[in-house]
Design a protein around this nucleic acid. Structure first.
Length: 366
DNA sequence: TCTGGGGTCCTAGGACCC
DNA sequence: TCTGGGGTCCTAGGACCC
């Protein structure tokens, strides 16, 4: 790698983010719903437990937001059409979006079902021309609308794609990063969520990225620690060197389930965990993976608190007869905190199953 | 009106070793 | 024999993202 060459010419990173993706996908196959408020979430029953995954812009006018309880969405907009989440259908459209991106450049980083980064440094044309071309292709081939941001790094490209939604196109010129961020709320920065936003405001009186960039380092460090303070200072100035990551291996897999009604039945919880283990084992086998650590997660109804118990396996494994007794043991380590709302199982520390490991396990468990 | 399901990364404390 | 410090691993929890 020629580092000086990479430094001398700034990168050109594009971020594409689909507008109200799940709702827009549903409208493709339900054109009769066009113009109506539409809410996609959970089982589609606004009276059941579940949250809004996506709301059309018509529904947003009534104050419906993603992450909101379905019941609350229904209270705010009773005339909305409620549809269940059909993840595999959206995934099929997502694959077509990625195919369009791959025609633009091979350097694509997936960032979820409805968004992605692409390094367009080597693509011919101005940033705006490339972004227009991409948006036009998405509109023609998928009949969907996307918002696009282009900047010198991932952080600023993502912020830019969000500035003019829906159907937006924002290019941040090299050198303009800090000025673009300055008037914006700190919460536009990916990684600064509700808790950090509140803490910045209440403890330090900081609301905007400009104020964050100008805050004394010692003050930030005293509140958030050295490393976090340094990170905040950089992102508030629009500085981000993080590389595009085209592919990575998953670090963990999990299944979790919220009960329709809270339960204190050990049999129900155990049965749920057992089904979850069966599904996870199938997934491990399909991917040729073994797990290193087992985690059981319970959410208790009272106070909505989540507790986990985890243990590293003596030997990474994909064998249910090794994992299941550990799940039972972990379950026994929870204190009684009343009825349970959610039960979940996570297998982490994934690695590829290797021949030697297989033989070893075969000897241990004939 | 209560808050889904799938993930990632970071931190802190205790155990343990040198 | 006592004390301290550094590094690493493991567990638990928190914040955040889509």
């Amino acid at each position: 790698m020629d580092k000086t060459a990479a430094r001398s010419r700034p990168r050109r990173i594009l971020h594409v983010d689909m507008d109200a993706f799940f709702a827009a996908c549903e409208l493709l196959r339900r054109p009769d719903l066009a113009g109506k408020p539409l809410v996609v979430g959970g089982s589609g029953d606004p009276q059941s437990r579940g949250v809004v995954s996506a709301a059309s812009y018509e529904a947003r006018r009534f104050g419906v937001r993603s992450g909101m309880a379905l019941r609350e969405a229904h209270r705010r907009c009773p005339q909305a059409v409620f549809l269940p989440v059909d993840f595999s259908y959206y995934a099929s459209l997502s694959r077509r979006l990625y195919a369009i991106l791959k025609r633009l450049t091979a350097r694509v980083e997936p960032a979820g079902i409805d968004e992605a980064f692409a390094d367009i440094s080597a693509v011919a044309g101005t940033a705006e021309e490339i972004a227009r071309r991409l948006k036009a292709r998405v509109r023609e081939e998928l009949k969907l609308s996307a918002s696009v941001g282009v900047a010198t790094n991932k952080l600023m490209a993502k912020v830019a794609s969000d500035l003019d939604k829906p159907d937006g196109l924002v290019v941040v010129k090299p050198g303009r990063e800090r000025a673009v961020l300055a008037p914006l709320s700190v919460k536009v920065i990916p990684g600064i969520g509700p808790k950090t936003t509140q803490r910045l405001s209440e403890r330090l009186g900081i609301e905007t990225c400009g104020q964050l960039a100008a805050a004394p380092s010692e003050q930030l460090a005293a509140e958030f620690g050295e490393r976090a303070a340094e990170w905040m200072h950089r992102v508030a100035r629009g500085i981000d060197d993080s590389p595009l990551i085209e592919e990575w291996e998953p670090r963990s897999v999990s299944r979790e389930q919220t009960f329709g009604a809270d339960t204190d039945s050990g049999a129900v919880i155990l049965g749920t965990l057992h089904r979850q283990l069966e599904r996870l084992i199938r997934e491990l086998h399909e991917e040729g993976n073994v797990a290193g650590t087992v985690t059981v997660k319970l959410r208790f109804a009272r106070g909505f608190i989540t507790r986990t118990r985890s243990q590293k396996l003596a030997q990474p494994t994909d064998r249910p007869e090794v994992i299941w007794p550990l799940v039972r043991e972990l379950l026994g380590r929870f204190e009684q905190v009343g009825s349970v709302r959610l039960a979940g199982l996570r297998l982490s520390g994934l690695s590829r199953k290797e021949q030697g490991q297989l033989e070893l396990l075969g000897r241990d468990h004939p």
